[in-house]
Each structure stands twice: as C-alpha cells, then as structure tokens.
Amino acid sequence: MSTTTPTRPPAATNAVRQRPGDRVFKGVATASGLTILVILAGVAAFLLYQAFPALVAPASDIAGGEGFWKYTAELVFGTALSAALALLIGAPLGVGIALFITHYAPRKLAAPLGYVIDLLAAIPSIVYGLWGVFVFAPALVPVYAWLADNLGWFPLFAGPVSSGRTMLTAGLVLAVMILPVITALSREVFRQTPTLQQEAALALGATRWRWSSTPSSPTASPASWPPRCSAWAAPSARPWPSPRCSRWPAGSRST
C-alpha cells in the first residue's frame, strides 16, 4: 500500500506531457523556430554561392580591371561615408527630439507629437528618395554655393558646385530618414527612466537640464547606443522600439 502512493506524481506529469495536442503544437512551434535557422542558412549559402565567381575571378574580368577588392572598396567607402554622415547628423537631432517630447514639451503636445513621429518612421524609403531628388537637393544648391564661396579654403566645402546631388546630400537625406527611428527608440528608452529618481532630482533643486541628463542618462546610456547602431544598419528600419533596446535599461535599474 505504502509503496504506491508517494511515487506516483512524476508519472502523472509525464501523462500530461504525452497529450497529442501538446506534442503537435510543440512540434509546430519548434519547426517555426528552426525555419529561421534554415532561412538564414539559405541566405548565407546563396549569397556565397552567387558571389563566389566574382571573388575568385581574375582581376581583369572585374569592371575597372583592378580586381574585386579594389572595385568594392570604393562602394564600401561611399556606403560607410553616407551612413556615418547620417548618423553624425541624425543621432544628436533624434535624441534631442526625443528629449523634447519626453522632458520639455507641454504634456498635451507630447502624445500627438509622438504619434506623428511614429507615423513618419513608417514612411517608405522611396518617398524620401523622391523628396531628396526633387526638393532637398535643389534647395541645397545655394547653400553649397555659399559654402564654396565663403568656406572654400576648407577642402570639404571647395567648389565648383554643380548640382545638389552630392554625398553630403545623401547623408542628409539618410539623416532625415533615420530621424524618426532614432527618436522613437530614444523616446522609449527615456520613458523607461524611473520616475522616482527624476522626481527626487527635481526635489533636490536640479535644473531641467540636470533633471533630464543626470538621472536618465545612466539608465539610458547603455541603451541609447543600440538604437543608433540599428538605425545605422538599416536606415529604413523599424518604426517601433526594438525589444532588445527596451530591455536594457530594465537590467541596469540598479544604478
């Protein structure tokens, strides 16, 4: 009698796990997870497979006649330069807007502003491209002309000015494109700052600048980098805060 009663429970949990519905559902979920592995392996394999001929081709077969690496180096430089320019301009502005919305704007204005920024983050890149070509580049020509006239001694701004379609314009358009993304992500990060700490800072007589910078930045600083990096990785990126970013400040709440 006594031997059967206490040893049964493990068997009972096993019986729960054996239900067919559970097995099927777990199988389907696992298969979906593994699909991700398959897709990424496929992406990597196909890219390598298709790119391999170019990698091993003799230098004379590549456009320009100087080999694959020389040919791509210029393209890589252009990509990196425009992205760096965009980040240089977009990141401080985006963080500034987020600060304005979370800490400076009147409360009635903050919510609609945040909504509009979220909307702008979802605007397709082709729209920004058309705008850049037809509105922004022509509008920049007089600015470039002025820069060439007045700051021409500085090599970066030397003329002659032909059209507005330069690397700086590309960087500026990219900056405009990543602005809403950076803003949305930084806003999410700033919102995570513990309210109590901020109120404590204000109660101690902190000015608004100290209020918004000191208590929020130790919490926000590890997390305000991923948004910038991911905005760099995909300028037309994600219109909502990536979970990874919003999880960081929670971990550093001990500050």
């Binding site: 985006g94 807007i97 405009v176």
Partner: peptide, 14 residues
C-alpha cells in the same frame, strides 16, 4: 527646442 524645430522642417517638407 532648436533640434526639434530643425528636424521638423524636413519632415514637414516631406
């Protein structure tokens, strides 16, 4: 505030 106003210009323009 300046960053906000500056950033508003291109977004409104778009």
């Amino acid at each position: 505030v300046g960053a906000f106003l500056l950033a508003l210009i291109p977004l409104i323009s778009v």
